[in-house]
Design a protein around this nucleic acid. Structure first.
Length: 435
RNA sequence: GUGCCCGUAGUUCAAUGGUAGAACGCCGCUUUGUGGAGGCGGUCACGGGAGUUCGAUUCUCCUCGGGCACCCCA
């Protein structure tokens, strides 16, 4: 039996055209975040399993992480997310880093689950974190950066929305306002998370099942329904509005308005899966029905760095997965035609390989990316290869050219060709490249 | 991890319980200093395994892979 040519399930081969797309996306990501002063870091793809056990969330670690024992019998995991790693790194140099600290990375992450649209086992994620700012200004900056990432790819305001909530608010509502214990709160979170997937009656039944008889008598479900109906902060009950977390959210919305970001709304159903979030959480949604899920998101996790035994550090971050992001760009036709890196394809005519070396070296010396067919093939074959590789220009080098030091440049798109000196050719090709 | 659907040349699709066709692609010739048109010729497949059967690409089961939903969602 032949070996399979397929990559491992849910993992990905990046053929040159795929890599070209990845380079385009990563390049823009880097451009945007570096404009805000974020610095790139990196870390190992393998971590001790313990790193995730503490705070990531039980199911994610137990069922969706690649784990194994190394030869020294240590439990290790292939990183399913970057946040614990970056927290570890920051904790390691807690005293010597310059705060506020702005770091980003584009790690390769793995999760063990069944692949489907927008979710593969292997993905890459832009991970952005801001350490040392406890005020709402940090949230403002995060969402500004997220927004600018969207804009950098040409996304219009009606293509995506920000949905914002607060874990602090949810904790207050569940524990103090509704008087739920930890188990009840946990169950309710799950029900709220899936509230858009069931009908009214089923939803009501599930809610009623959570409350104890005395809570029901106390009108807990009525209070809850009113909370869940709130489409904006102002629709929350008066005694909730005065809570600190709501005031913070209000300030955040005001700041975002001031920055011209108005495709935002309060959404009490935004919870996010990780246990480590402590404050504002947000998600970016694609408005196209074809991608009916959250595209990416993040939030505040003030407790994570402190878990490494150092002084706690307020932190906020978000992550953008490349798969869902690419789905978004495709759905909204935001992907440009990506050209290959090769600028010029040299077609050798006749037996001139030796004599052509000087001129080819000169072209490369002038910073053109130059490919030489070089197999002594017929001219039409060489041209066909150039067309297939999607190179825009070919340059013929034959006796005619070498004797006059003037070369035939052909534009494969227009079909036009003309003889030029080398300087002129370089300038034409560079003009095209910089378009 | 659970359920449903699917798996035929490189690609997109046919047909059939008696081992398979097309289109596009690819290779060659037409044309050894010019590609994308046409003509001619050629190349390439039943995901893997087991079972039922005289015989399986076709039916059954398992497995691998893909899609969708659930679970979960960084």
């Amino acid at each position: 039996m032949n070996l399979s040519t397929q990559p491992y399930k849910g993992a990905r081969d990046f053929f040159p055209e795929d890599k070209r797309l990845q380079k385009y996306i990563f390049g823009k990501w880097r451009q945007v975040v570096e404009r805000y002063g974020y610095e790139e870091y990196d870390a190992p793809i393998i971590e001790p399993l313990d790193l995730y056990l503490a705070k990531t969330g039980e199911e994610i670690v137990n069922e969706q992480t690649y784990t194994f024992k190394d030869r020294g019998d240590r439990q290790v995991a292939i990183r399913p997310e970057m946040t614990p790693t970056v927290s570890r790194m920051v904790a390691a140099k807690r005293q010597e880093l310059a705060y506020p600290l702005r770091w980003y990375s584009i790690p390769n992450l793995w999760r063990y689950e069944r692949p489907q649209r927008g979710r593969l086992r292997e993905h890459w994620q832009l991970n952005l974190d801001l350490f040392g700012v406890s005020g709402i200004e940090a949230e403002h900056e995060m969402i500004m950066v997220a927004n600018e990432i969207m804009r950098a790819f040409g996304a219009k305001w009606d293509m995506y929305t920000f949905r914002i909530n607060s874990r602090q608010l949810m904790n207050y509502l569940m524990q103090d306002y509704l008087g739920l214990d930890v188990t009840q709160a946990h169950t309710l979170s799950k029900v709220i998370d899936s509230m858009h997937k069931m009908d009214q009656a089923e939803f009501m039944a599930q809610i009623e099942a959570i409350f104890s008889p005395s809570q029901r008598e106390g009108g807990a479900s009525t209070k809850l329904i009113r909370l869940l109906r709130a489409q904006s902060l102002s629709e929350l009950p008066d005694e909730v509005i005065v809570h600190e977390s709501v005031q913070q959210l209000q300030k955040l919305f005001d700041l975002l308005d001031g920055s011209g970001i108005t495709n935002t709304r309060f959404d009490i159903s935004i919870m996010r899966g990780f246990d480590y979030y402590t404050g504002v959480v947000f998600e970016v949604f694609d408005t196209d029905p074809a991608n009916n899920r959250s595209m990416f998101g993040g939030g505040r996790y003030d407790g994570l760095v402190g878990m490494f035994g150092v002084e706690p550090l307020p932190t906020i971050g978000f992550g953008v997965g490349d798969v869902t992001f690419q789905n978004f760009l495709e759905t909204h036709n935001l992907l440009p035609d990506l050209r290959p890196e090769t600028d010029l394809y040299i077609v050798l005519v006749g037996n001139v390989y030796d004599r052509a070396q000087d001129i080819i070296a000169e072209l490369r010396g002038m910073k053109l990316n130059v490919l030489v067919d070089g197999y002594g093939r017929s001219v039409d074959k060489q041209i066909k290869s150039a067309v297939k590789k999607d190179v825009r220009y070919i340059m013929f080098v034959g006796d005619k050219e070498l004797s006059t030091d003037s070369y035939t440049l052909k534009d494969l798109k227009t079909g036009q060709e003309a003889m030029h000196g080398i300087e002129r050719i370089v300038s034409i090709v560079k003009d095209f490249r910089s378009q």
